[in-house]
């Protein structure tokens, strides 16, 4: 059991998303930074789709009621256990009764907390992700607040047997973290409506800096700058959008669609972020800047496949580390 002492700004239960129901208008939800979510799970021996807490900017305070392993991946929100700073991107043995808290955000804005066994909430439409707008899924369909008690699946006995050893042993290994930045260059493919934009806009899309506005959330980031415009007005027929679609409403400020995006949209899509770079975008805070660099579809798919191979390799090396502890 996890006792929530403070809820934090927006702490929600997420997995890799709710797929198969978008045709009914049900959004995918899921981790904004799927890479960090997956790694956090793998580090504690979970399936990569197990439910985690997505912690946003101002973290929660959580007390662990029994011994378990945890991992913190994603943005550096200065995590502490019983007041002592702890590392992230590695497994940590946490004793029952200890308390996890967070401090100032040092890099990125979302951190994933995975616990061995996984967070136990009911599955709804094949997923444990929180669907905030519909108030369903996750933990009671909402962000955590003080006083909540969240169930955790039991840690496998074999893993728990190595708890004392893990606690005493110097474990300075970490998995490599993505290069989160406050001014990243993000790889973007031309979107379905790229050619409908005027020449200047087609150019600025790949040269200008865009600033993340304060009007940004899990649904999408509004970007300022560029003032992108169509060559001539066009009435488009609504169609599907995807994680990382960049659509441009009439005011010319692009919107990057993220985990809580609607299933369909009617604005022209100037671009589509390469999936491998989505974590870098999801970790941006209002005021951060980004620039887009063109990538072809073939290259984006090659990068994705490469990343998947790397994750498989990491999975194996994590398993080997666990065996050393046993």
């Amino acid at each position: 059991m996890l006792q929530i002492i403070k809820g934090g700004l927006q702490t929600t239960v997420q997995d890799l998303g709710r797929y198969g129901y978008q045709k009914f208008g049900v959004i995918t939800s899921g981790a904004m930074d799927p890479y960090a979510h997956r790694l956090a799970n793998l580090l504690v021996g979970n399936d990569e789709n197990a439910a985690t807490f997505e912690v946003t900017l101002v973290g929660p305070t959580i007390q662990f009621e029994r011994d378990m392993f945890i991992a913190l991946c994603g943005g550096n929100l200065s995590p502490k256990i019983d007041g002592h700073a702890v590392d992230f991107w590695r497994p940590l043995a946490v004793k029952g009764g200890s308390t996890l808290s967070f401090g100032a955000p040092k890099a990125g804005c979302r951190c994933y907390l995975a616990v061995s066994g996984g967070i136990s909430v009911p599955e709804l439409m094949n997923s444990r992700s929180t669907y905030l707008r519909a108030e369903i899924g996750g933990f009671q369909g909402r962000s955590l607040k003080a006083g909540d008690r969240v169930e955790v699946n039991p840690t496998p006995a074999k893993q728990l047997a190595s708890f004392d050893k893990a606690l005493s042993k110097d474990t300075d290994w970490q998995v490599p973290a993505p290069r989160y930045s406050t001014a990243p260059v993000i790889r973007m493919m031309k979107g379905r409506h790229y050619e409908l934009f005027d020449e200047e806009s087609r150019k600025s899309a790949f040269t200008d800096f865009f600033t993340v506005s304060s009007n940004s959330d899990r649904m999408g980031y509004r970007l300022e700058g560029g003032a992108l415009a169509l060559e001539e007005p066009a009435e488009l027929i609504s169609e599907a959008v995807a994680f990382g679609s960049i659509q441009v409403p009439a005011d010319g400020n692009p919107i990057v669609l993220l985990a809580d995006r609607q299933t369909t949209g009617g604005y022209p899509k100037i671009g589509q972020i390469a999936s491998v770079d989505l974590p870098l975008v999801s970790q941006l805070k209002p005021g951060d800047r980004l620039r887009f660099q063109e990538v072809t579809l073939q290259e984006a798919q090659r990068l994705w496949i490469e990343q998947e191979h790397r994750i498989q390799q990491l999975k194996i090396s994590i398993q080997l580390k666990w065996e050393e502890w046993e």
Binding site: Y19, I237, E239, A240, T263, T264
Partner: peptide, 17 residues
């Protein structure tokens, strides 16, 4: 993976691996 049918289009989601 899944599909999203719309007015005049169908988006087909797939696994690139």
């Amino acid at each position: 993976l899944e599909i999203i049918p719309a007015f005049t289009t169908i988006a087909v989601f797939y696994t690139p691996t």
